[in-house]
Design a binder for these strands. Structure first.
Ligand SMILES: [Mn+2]
Ligand SMILES: [Mn+2]
Ligand SMILES: [Zn+2]
Ligand SMILES: [Zn+2]
Lengths: 143, 143
DNA sequence: GCCTTTCTTTAGAATAGTTCTAATTACTAC
DNA sequence: GTAGTAATTAGAACTATTCTAAAGAAAGGC
């Protein structure tokens, strides 16, 4: 069984859990995110998907991305007011935004550190999520 | 000497350092941010300033806010794709976004913690800034 | 297998927040 | 005062995203 088939099955399961249907559009959008994990924008995803399925619309790409986010298969990532980027990495991680190259890098976060960060919250603050973002410059081009 | 006068002097200094002029618009925008530190949007600042200076334009408010940010007197704060909010708190701090009330709270960050967070960056990553944002719900209404 | 209902996709219009443009006004330097 | 520069202003333009309404696809009942 191929990786794509496994992903498709996992996706179908998650969608079903939310009462949603697996569609070719949702599958291909998810596959593209998994194939090139460079935090693309909706426009970039649209361009990549269009190459394989020319009839897809931008609205559908937005719909699919929202759906994937709501199923917790994909994270929406924002830097200032730039276009939203999409990340299929489900491990706890921060984002490093390279201002020079525009590239976004995943930075794994040890659970201990996340605990420490959460512990700065005074009594009465219940955080559902913590986001850590670095801005700067990275030396290597990397993958 | 009044607090407002002191702020105005500090502002004039910072502006001069950047080769910019102190103007009534820049002063009043900065004063409004200092007076009510609730992380207002540009529109909200516009409404507050307009009450005291009815001829000011929204474009000018945007210009002044950008100027204050570029002088490092004010921080621009973004949550997802919502309108940018403005924060005159210069201490190192994180933001807690209360999804229920829409309020934004400042969370002071001990320097030691910031160091720890920066230390997760692999060699080659030079961060000019670190942003920490919590999303959740806060118990008390607070200021 | 049809019928009905519900979900999804699609193209294009609409929206929100912000920036740009070009004209006017206000300073500053000489 | 005059010339040159900087700042403000109103409105147009722009970008990313969501909405709308129509058409298409899938599922369930019988
Ligand atoms: Mn950035
Ligand atoms: Mn939020
Ligand atoms: Zn990521
Ligand atoms: Zn703040």
């Amino acid at each position: 069984m191929s990786i794509a088939t496994l992903n498709a099955a996992a996706l179908a399961q998650r969608l079903a859990d939310s009462g949603l249907r697996a569609t070719p559009q949702r599958e291909i959008v998810y596959d593209m995110l998994l194939k090139k994990r460079d935090h693309p924008t909706a426009d970039e995803v649209f361009a990549r998907v269009k190459a394989a399925r020319p009839t897809i619309s931008l609205a559908t790409v937005y719909n699919c991305l929202q759906t994937l986010v709501s199923c917790d298969l994909v994270r929406a990532v924002n830097f200032e007011r730039g276009p939203t980027r999409y990340c299929p990495n489900l491990r706890p991680h921060a984002h490093f935004h390279d201002e020079k190259s525009g590239q976004t890098h995943d930075i794994d976060l040890p659970p201990r550190l996340l605990e420490k960060v959460r512990s700065v919250l005074p009594r009465g603050f219940a955080a559902k999520s913590v986001e850590i973002t670095f801005h700067g410059q990275a030396r290597h081009a990397s993958r």
